[in-house]
Design a binder for these strands. Sequence first.
DNA 1: TTGTATGCGTTATCAT
DNA 2: ATGATAACGCATACAA
Lengths: 352, 352
Amino acid sequence: MGKQNQTIKKATIYDIAQKAGTSTATVSRVLSNSSYPTSREIRKKVLDTAQKMNYTPNLLGRMLKKNESRDIGVIIPNISNPFYPQLVLGIETEAKKHGFNILLCNSFRDVSNEKKYIESMYQKQVKGIILSTISEEHGFLKKLCENGLKIVGFDQNIEDFQCNKISFDFTAGGMMAVDYLVSMGHKKIAFATSPLTRRSRREIFDGYKLGLMKNNIEFSADYLYVAELEKEVENGTFEFENGIKIARKCLASKKLPTGIFAVNDVTAMGIMHGLLSSGVKIPEDISVIGFDNIEFSAMVNPPLTTINQPAFETGRLACKVLIENLEGDESDYVSFKLEPSLVQRESVRNVK
Amino acid sequence: MGKQNQTIKKATIYDIAQKAGTSTATVSRVLSNSSYPTSREIRKKVLDTAQKMNYTPNLLGRMLKKNESRDIGVIIPNISNPFYPQLVLGIETEAKKHGFNILLCNSFRDVSNEKKYIESMYQKQVKGIILSTISEEHGFLKKLCENGLKIVGFDQNIEDFQCNKISFDFTAGGMMAVDYLVSMGHKKIAFATSPLTRRSRREIFDGYKLGLMKNNIEFSADYLYVAELEKEVENGTFEFENGIKIARKCLASKKLPTGIFAVNDVTAMGIMHGLLSSGVKIPEDISVIGFDNIEFSAMVNPPLTTINQPAFETGRLACKVLIENLEGDESDYVSFKLEPSLVQRESVRNVK
DNA sequence: TTGTATGCGTTATCAT
DNA sequence: ATGATAACGCATACAA
């Protein structure tokens, strides 16, 4: 049942013009739904032969000629981190509404991947890119923007130059978690995190300290659990394992906290797992609060109380901003900061 | 801090030829790393001015001219179902190895979305598409294949016409789950599922019945739990809610099973949640086994025993097959069937 | 080794 | 209302 891998010649407007006994100009006009007037009969004739010849337009030709693109690039760190699919969904929803398609790439937090993808998108003539950049140095990106590329950044900030940004108030989220724990009567509140190598983690940590301060609780290094590890790997298992290690470290320490605030939900799940398998009850013995509000945090046992970071909304907004920037005649750079919110479930106990 | 939204003219090989005092042919030769010989000096001159002018090639021109594409299309039902990101990762890994990029789209199991995306990819001149099709009618797709498009299907089968396929033995997986439960001493084994509207679910159900038969256990409708619902929604919460409903239904019934086999992991999580919150202990009182082995099934409490469906490997293989089909001079259609495997964790108890 | 000229598939300008 | 033709940016056959 083989099939020759021959290159098959697709029908072009030229071929159709021939068969239909007209010109490429006319064919183009009817097939591209031009507003240009065409007679009923010839229109029908063209449409019919196009159908008969299985014609599909070659977008490359069109794009080359018109110098327009309905694609927008999206670069995320890793699709397998459940936060990002939600974000992508938000982007896609908004994009589709305006007739745009998205080109999605995973940088895996690798600078050279990121650069390669940006370059490739630019060469494919995308006019705009939504990205979570990992680079520190943005000379390259800046140059593209000077050449007309529109971008909107999220997650990490781009500080080298002016551009659109959607950010999230991680610090406020950190404070919010502490505030809530305190409102539930907790005073011995630990912070559990992977190494503070990312801005977002550092900002959450800042929020933690600020929250403590605000509530007149002294920060103690005894309650700072940072997972130590060989090499950070870009998947969920990694954070989960960190959580398990942290739970062990916690249980081995002299000073047990009553509440643990984890830098993200997956770490929180690891902590819960570690604690539970040592016979510690959650939230009866120790309370746990997470960060992010990924879909699965509602599905664990007990359901995880956490701080919501609006992934879908971030994506939707980022895309909205980009498209406005793309289609607007002129525009200023725009910067939004999204706010956290508390999602109460069952992993935090009222100890008052 | 506004910036005019002017259309900026990018440098082309023509511009460079002018500045460098040479021809577009020469410029093209050096800039596209052609094997064609060029003198040292002029080469350097061209490279320098290209650099100076911020030149980036327009891939549209190149693709149009060469009629080649390094893109492959990928259509999945929904990126927010954790199975698919893993699959995409597998595709991407293999694609990158061969210098291909992927164009990813979510069909949301909507026939018209699917068709639109296929069409759009085809018009962008992709030579190959990897897809999980939802359509029943593939005349459209078949026509494209006759016009040279290469495809490889996964998930659901395409039966209308010959093409490459990567399938998974859902039935064997279903049997495997039952076999395992039986080997752990279970005889009252329930099957929990969303409505059997998908081939994969039906095949797993077949496996369940076959497994029962093989072990001389009579099938009983009392142990068939199918969630009834208004409208199926494409997200995890939906399956989770189903699981909760099923748990309720189970507890309300006269004949309690000792083990429940769920059609997927998220449903299993819902079941566990429903059971646990009614005070039923897992696996002490009732055992639960899932299907899929998504990453999160290791993170719930108790960790879920499940049947592994190799998402990453499916993607990797699908991409490998496609690229071989694309680059091979001629080739037969290829069809692989991947096998399930058991992942033992802690949600099944030995009742012997 | 270099340059000229043509064509990829499309749209748009300008006559008619 | 229709058609001939140029142009988009690039690669290449061919001539030099």
